[in-house]
Design a binder for these strands. Structure first.
Length: 482
DNA sequence: ATGTAC
């Protein structure tokens, strides 16, 4: 085993530091505990935290959440903020799936009444929601109409009758990032996106029905309208081929610009550009456009779920009481105000596989969540659980207002297939009262529950670190996987 | 994550 160029030093029960050394500009900090530390030591995610700490203009620390795992350049589960003058923006710090994210809707149903009808419900979702790699058949748009989507985000879907105006207060950034510029989105990206709006995608993207299995914070749950045994709907999807193409386009350009800007990189995958360059402005404009496509996509998918539900089970809107709880980004970069050493600064926060976790009274939160902190939505795996958390002050002090985003993979897709050879994951899930429908031949085995860390441990670390608090736990009942 | 390689 080769010696690492850095040390991993335990600070307390949930914090491990990479002290500044070599070309690091800031220290690294990984949130984990003794249970998840071995998973982190197994892959290269700590190396990636160390690499990110070397980028120009990085401030605070190079951070990793307990669900961290290896990613393209930056680790998935990573958070990094950059000074607005000296810093950079990096497509690898956002990820290929720009504004991959998740939303949860609550209903007026309870688990007992739904369990007998879960199969026809999931079957009808499977029939109506386009899923899988390259899925089309969502909404077809011409270039000028798609440009409107890229500017308006979720509000475009609402303007088409898909959802309600009040949904927008329940979406991060109101369902649209500012500064979206369709003119810097390539023709190829437009081409890939034009018939993919309202499609789920593949991999770990899903549409899941579950119920509130446990409430941890009675007051917050009551304020948010969450009750024991209540049926929930969760959508996990992103910007599809359009966002992928935006990332690809700008990575190619930045790989070339890095040398000219005099930026030295420990890894080519960290390609980036200084924030004051025209290229940065273009990337941020294209990234915001792709993020808005993803906001619109989740708004449409949720509307599709609602209308399919009402039709297939013949249930009235009054009985279903379908309403959006919240929608969060898991992959995005944004200018935000943060306090560093007592000084307020505008920084470019990269969250890649990390969720914003703003606490109560944060000025960016809509009125709806001003008194509680924002909902922080954490999907787990298909078989065990997902969590609804609330942002806490500790996140503002330590992580640029961020928390974890999920369970975090521990097995590669290849390794997951190897370990599930000859097993029926469908039957195993059904034995746990989870009814799955899926598209790809290998999807279910690649995504089987133990390909992921235990989300309960991940969330426990986040709570003990003071980044977010547990509000409720969801148990899955049925799922559509792409 | 991804028309899983243009």
């Amino acid at each position: 085993m080769t010696q690492k160029p850095y040390k991993l030093v335990q600070i307390d029960e949930v914090r491990w530091e990479i002290p500044r050394t070599g070309k690091m500009r800031v220290p690294g900090l990984i949130y984990t505990d003794a249970r998840t530390l071995p998973d982190i030591e197994k892959d290269e995610s700590a190396d990636q935290v160390y690499n990110v700490a070397q980028l120009p203009g990085i401030v605070g620390r190079s951070l990793a959440m307990p669900d961290v795992h290896w990613g393209y350049g930056f680790p998935i589960g990573g958070v990094a903020a950059f000074d607005e003058h000296e810093g950079v923006v990096s497509p690898g710090g956002v990820g290929y799936d720009i504004n991959c994210g998740v939303r949860i809707a609550l209903t007026g149903l309870n688990k007992e009444s739904l369990y007998p009808r879960i199969r026809p419900l999931i079957d009808s979702f499977f029939a109506k929601v386009p899923s899988g790699v390259g899925s089309r058949g969502g909404i077809r748009l011409n270039k000028s109409e798609l440009s409107k989507v890229l500017k308006a985000g979720a509000a475009w879907a609402v303007s088409q009758g898909m959802g309600e105006e009040s949904d927008l207060d329940r979406i991060e950034a109101g369902g649209a990032l500012q500064g979206a510029d369709p003119s810097v989105v390539s023709d190829r990206a437009f081409e890939r996106g034009k018939d993919q709006l309202g499609t789920l995608g593949s991999g770990n993207h899903f549409l899941e029905i579950g119920f509130i299995e446990k409430i941890f914070d009675e007051d917050t749950a009551a304020q948010w309208g969450i009750v024991q045994d209540q049926v929930t709907v969760m959508v996990h999807s992103g910007s599809r081929g359009l966002g992928y193409q935006v990332c690809d386009d700008f990575l190619a350009r930045m790989v070339k610009s890095v040398a000219a800007e005099g930026i030295e990189l420990p890894d080519r995958q960290l390609a980036c550009t200084r924030l004051h360059t025209p290229l940065a402005r273009e990337y941020l404009g294209a990234m915001a456009a792709a993020a808005n496509f993803a906001f619109a996509n989740r708004q449409i998918l949720m509307h599709l779920a609602r209308t399919t539900w009402e039709k297939s089970l013949g249930i009235s809107p009054r009985e279903l009481q379908f309403r959006l709880l919240y929608d969060v980004c898991h992959n995005v970069a944004k200018f935000e105000m943060h306090t560093l050493n007592g000084q307020k600064r505008r920084v470019m926060v990269h969250r890649k596989g990390a969720t914003r976790a703003f606490p109560k009274n944060h000025p960016e939160l809509s009125e709806v969540y001003r008194s509680t902190g924002q909902p922080v939505l954490i999907p787990g795996d298909m078989g065990r659980a997902s969590y609804i958390l609330a942002g806490q002050e500790g996140a503002m002090n330590e992580t640029f207002g961020s928390a974890c985003h999920g369970a975090g993979r521990i097995l590669s897709r290849h390794e997951a297939l190897r370990q599930t050879k000859g097993r029926s994951i469908e039957r195993e899930l059904q034995d746990q009262n989870v009814y799955p429908r899926w598209v790809g031949r290998k999807t279910l085995r690649e995504e089987f529950p133990h390909a992921y860390k235990d989300v309960s441990i991940v969330v426990d670390v986040v709570q003990r670190a003071g980044l977010a608090r547990k509000v409720a736990r969801i148990r899955p009942m049925g799922v559509v996987k792409g």
